[in-house]
Design a protein around this nucleic acid. Structure first.
Lengths: 146, 146
DNA sequence: TACCTAATGAGACTCAGTATCGTCAAGGCC
DNA sequence: GGCCTTGACGATACTGAGTCTCATTAGGTA
C-alpha cells in the first residue's frame, strides 16, 4: 500500500489529462502490495463497483509504464505482471510465497554486462534481471510453523 | 542451424516415445538460428507441408522445455519465445537486429544474487537474466555500411 | 502380429490484449 | 461561467496464443 498521488502527479507533469478513470487505476495500484496483472485490476474495479472499462485499464497501464510509474515483469510462470516502482533503473526481487516485491539497484550488474560483452563481442544495450525467492517475513512465518 | 539428434536422443533417454511429429519439431528447431515462437514453428511446418498439429507443437515445446533441450525467454516486447540450448544453467544474449542468440554461463551472477540476499533478507531461489544488444556480425555489417 | 496405451490432430474453447468508433468531459480560452 | 477542441472514455468486436477434449493412430513390447 503506497500513495497514488505520485503516479497522478507524474501524469500531470508529463502533460496528460487527470481523468477520473486514471485516478481510479492509480488508486487500485497504490492499494496493492507486490505484483499484479491487468486482470487483477479489472477484478478489483468490478468488485469495488468502480466504473472503469477493461480497455481503459490496459491503456492506462501502458501509459503508466511509459511514465515509468509501473514496470512490467515476467513471472517464472510466463505470465505478465506489473509492479509499482520508482522511475530509475533497478530490478525486482519477487517473493514466491506472498508475491511481495522489493526493488533493488543493479549493483554488480554493470560488471556482469561488461564481462559478457568482453566474452561474446556483443554490444550490450539492455538487460532484464528478475530474482525470485522467499522474503524475510515468509521465512520467519515458515520457521514459526516449524 | 544445429543438429536435431541431440534433442531426439534426450527424448529417448528420458523414456519418451520417439514419434514422427516429435522428430519433425526437433528438426524445425534445429534448422532455426536464434529464438523462435511457437507460431514460427507452426508456420514452418505448414510451409513445408509437414503434417503436425498446432496442439502438438505446443505440447512438444513444453516437453522439450521440461527436458531442458529448449528454454523459454521473454523478449523486451513481452513476447514469449524459445531458444535451443544446452541443459546447464546459463543465460542468453539476444541480438536485437538478427535475433541470433548466444548462451553464456552465469559468471558473476552468483555474487550478485548473494549481494541481493544480504541486502534484502530474501532467500534467493532462482533468477532470470536476459541481455539484449548487437552481435559482432551486425556491428561489423553496420560499420561496413558506414 | 496383436495389444496396450501414450501421443496425435481436429477443433472448440478461454482469455489477454488490441482496434474501432461514437460519445463524453478535461482544461484552455474568452 | 460558458464554449469549444480534442484527448480520453466505454462498449464491443476482434485477434491470436495457449489449453482442453476426445476419438483415432501409431510406437514399443511381448
Amino acid at each position: 500500500m503506497t500513495d497514488a498521488s505520485g503516479i497522478v502527479s507524474s501524469l500531470d507533469r508529463a502533460g496528460y489529462r487527470l481523468t477520473e478513470p486514471r485516478r481510479v487505476v492509480a488508486g487500485l495500484i497504490a492499494e496493492r502490495d507486490g505484483h499484479f496483472t491487468a486482470a487483477d485490476l479489472v477484478d478489483d474495479a468490478r468488485r469495488q463497483r468502480l466504473d472503469v472499462g477493461r480497455a481503459t485499464i490496459f491503456r492506462t497501464l501502458e501509459l503508466f509504464t511509459e511514465l515509468n510509474a509501473v514496470e512490467r515483469v515476467d513471472l517464472p510462470s510466463g505470465d505478465h505482471a506489473y509492479v509499482e516502482c520508482e522511475p530509475i533503473h533497478h530490478h525486482h526481487v519477487i517473493c514466491s510465497l506472498c508475491q511481495r516485491t522489493t526493488e533493488i539497484e543493479a549493483c554488480g550488474m554493470p560488471a556482469v554486462a561488461r564481462d559478457v560483452a568482453r566474452r561474446t563481442g556483443f554490444r550490450i544495450q539492455s538487460h532484464r534481471l528478475e530474482l525470485f525467492g522467499v522474503c524475510p517475513d515468509c521465512q520467519a512465518a515458515a520457521s514459526r510453523r516449524g
